[in-house]
């Protein structure tokens, strides 16, 4: 009996982990490519790895787009409709507290109102090789962009770009 429980638990664990991986890969494969202007702040060095916290211009834009009645909804969910400029960099078209007004295949990200800004929790961190976090932080404000993929409002970070929108190659 114990052998069966052991095998079933291991099998379920592997299946569950691979399902999470599959969900993420689906967003990366099928999602629309979007570029966002970002600024790295406060690199953290955890024993398990290193990452930089990313802040986005659209966080404030999306918050400013809310009405005075919607702004106090702390931790409230929002749907931020995006559009792209001539370079392909995204800007906020509209911020909504509901999703039924979104057009089919429209470009939008899910976020939440937190501390006077709209927070995109899944876009906030970028894990790097140990020692590279501080190098990313040295990049001047306004010169750093992020390529993301969005599918059904769920966004994932793909890579960092320079101000020519070329991938940044960092080395130690």
């Amino acid at each position: 009996m114990k052998n069966i429980i052991f095998v079933v638990t291991i099998f379920t664990f592997v299946t569950y982990t691979l399902f999470i991986v599959y969900q993420q890969e689906k967003i990366l494969d099928e999602g629309q490519v979007v570029i966002l202007k970002t600024a790295p702040v406060d690199p953290r060095d955890m024993f398990r790895g290193e990452y930089v916290i990313l802040r986005y211009e659209i966080e404030q834009e999306a918050y400013d787009n809310l009405s005075v009645y919607q702004k106090p909804l702390d931790r409230g969910k929002v749907y931020v409709s995006l559009n792209k400029d001539y370079r392909g960099v995204a800007y906020v078209e509209r911020t909504m507290t509901y999703d039924y007004d979104l057009r089919p295949n429209s470009l939008y990200i899910k976020g939440e109102i937190k501390n006077d800004r709209v927070r995109f929790a899944d876009l906030e961190q970028y894990y790097v090789t140990e020692g590279l976090g501080s190098k990313i932080e040295e990049i001047p404000a306004g010169k750093l962009f992020v390529e993301i993929r969005i599918k059904d409002g769920n966004a994932r970070v793909v890579r960092l770009l320079d101000d020519n929108l070329e991938p940044i190659e960092l080395s130690l």
Binding site: T9, T12, F13, Y16, T17, I20, V21, Q24, L28, R48, G49, Y51, A121, D122, L123, E124, Q125, Y126, Y127, R156, V157
Partner: peptide, 26 residues
Amino acid sequence: GSFAIVGQIYHIEANMTTFFASWTAF
């Protein structure tokens, strides 16, 4: 640790309640 690494691979912030619930379940 495994769940944390998968989170890092996709640069996602794990929801702590879901993270611990999955960990506890397995």
